[in-house]
Amino acid sequence: MHRFANPARFLRMANAVLPYAAAAAAALLAAGLWFALIASPPDYQQKDSVRIMYIHVPSAWMGMVCYAAMALFSAMALVWKHPLADLLARATAPVGAAFTFICLVTGALWGKPMWGTWWAWDARLTSMLILFFLYLGHMALANAFDDPARGHKAAAILALVGAVNLPVIKFSVDWWNTLHQPASVAKMGGPSIDPSMLVPLLLMAAGFKAYWLMVLILRARAEIAAAKVHTIRMAQVHAAGQGE
């Protein structure tokens, strides 16, 4: 892990991976969309509206994966004081927020024709909305202070405290009565989705992951450069102050 502590080395590795991530994202999303919209059957009861699942579920997964990554980076920052950890947490927050937003809106578009309502305050939907606000809170805190270190510490604590929401989201449909149905893929007994529908779902999920990797690398580059600029500027201010 500490091999990545050197930003120059991290950047070299990240830039090497970037074109592959981009190519994988393009290929997987193209294949996923083909299967999602064209080469997969309508559901026996949800008919064509099931195709929204191929956006809604992968974005839900990514919203949660991003947050777990953010929590992990936050732990690395607070416990191991890994120099890049705060920057990576900052880098991934907006992407996670975007995925969660997509999940909530596509969920509403799917819920209206199937359930009969755009929204319900059940445990699954409410906890996902909370996740969205946790992301916004993280982004706000990380930028709230003049001293970035204080902002990062506050944001890291928020990320870790909010991490208790992840098992709540996952198990909400099992622990309580909810309008949202139980899990179809990650459950005991195997997936309850026909293979013809599992294929587009998994392709889109993989494509979203590759996309996330690509965006994360770009954002990490931006954060690292910005941090270096900040350091140089602080040094200049310090030097100017001493030169009087």
Binding site: K47, P94, T106
Partner: peptide, 23 residues
């Protein structure tokens, strides 16, 4: 889309717009 066009296309459209914008 079997009558569900008003739900499906906005869903895919939104995802596309948001993901391209973030990128």
């Amino acid at each position: 889309m079997g009558g569900y066009a008003g739900y499906i296309w906005p869903a895919y459209g939104l995802a596309l717009v948001v993901m391209v914008a973030v990128l």
